[in-house]
Design a protein around this nucleic acid. Structure first.
Length: 271
DNA sequence: AGCCAGGCTGCGA
DNA sequence: TCGCAGCATGGC
């Protein structure tokens, strides 16, 4: 893989990443195709991407942007080709690994990830996106030079209150978002520190938040805290497990590749 | 029209 | 400890 700065853009050549699969496999909710450009926000900054014959293009980006943020966000330093091969070697995982080839696990902002997956419970992806977008419009800040709004801070949600939060039409999840904001703001839950502790400790701490159960905690651990042994089980994954493995299925056999294996299963079962 | 959605809480047994 | 009704809302 090689990365160049070229006419104000970053060109990533010969990389494993498939941006369409990576951004449309249900791990993030703020990116959409606009023609041939995949547009969205991460860490309060707009990111525009394109597939070109030469490779993946990050528009309007410098090498400093890439090295300072997007390389880590896109998880470009991991050996995904090796991980894919390791997962494909497990009985029952061959097809999912092949279909999911190109998926990378984004290193998303922990707070936004927490809120996103609180909103995701008993919900569907189009509506999850709408609710997140409306929260940003109502309580985020406009990013200068773009049409995007930042994700609201914990302080913004606490000051808004449950009733205002529910103007996003998130329904019964409004009180959960409020509790999450309160606990993050007052330090009861220190998201940054949960990156450094064990996966089990992180999940336990996250579950002290109202509306955060095993599944949501696993998603936050995987997509926002870098705990790659997390394995979120939702209705789709349950179906894939029943279909491909039956009763005896233990995700811990995948070790640090469990999260990626889960994404392969989700992608192959859902899309 | 009615089932379902990247589930969780609170309650009863 | 386990099972399960109820939950807000809207996509399909």
């Amino acid at each position: 893989m090689e990365v160049f700065e070229k006419k104000g853009n970053i060109l990533i050549q010969g990389a494993h990443i498939d941006i369409d699969k990576t951004f449309n496999c249900g791990q993030c909710f703020r990116f959409d195709w606009d023609g041939d450009t995949l547009k969205g926000m991460a860490y309060d900054r707009p990111l525009y991407m394109q597939n070109t014959p030469e490779g993946v293009l990050l528009l309007n980006s410098t090498m400093a942007d890439y090295e300072g943020l997007w390389k880590a966000y896109l998880d470009m330093d991991r050996d995904y080709i090796g991980a894919n091969a390791a997962i494909a070697a497990y009985k029952g995982m061959e097809a999912a690994a092949e279909r999911g080839y190109g998926i990378q696990i984004l290193n998303q902002d922990p707070w936004e990830t927490l809120c996103s997956f609180i909103i995701s419970q008993n919900n569907n992806i189009p509506r999850i996106k709408k609710i997140i977008n409306s929260l940003c419009l109502m309580l985020g800040k406009k990013v200068p030079g773009s049409n995007f709004y930042s994700f609201p801070t914990p302080k913004a949600l606490v000051e808004a209150g449950v009733e205002k939060i529910n103007e996003s039409r998130c329904g019964f999840r409004a009180k959960y978002l409020y509790d999450a904001a309160k606990k993050v703001l007052n330090g009861d839950v220190d998201l940054e520190s949960l990156k450094d502790c064990s996966f089990e400790e992180a999940v336990t701490a996250l579950q002290t938040i109202k509306g955060v159960g095993v599944k949501v905690a696993n998603c936050v651990a995987l997509f926002g805290l870098g705990h790659r042994s997390a394995f979120p089980i939702d209705v789709w994954i349950k179906r894939v497990i029943e279909r491909d493995f039956g009763e005896s299925f233990d995700p811990t056999v995948f070790g640090e590749n469990a999260g990626l294996a889960q994404q392969y299963m989700y992608y192959s079962g859902r899309f």
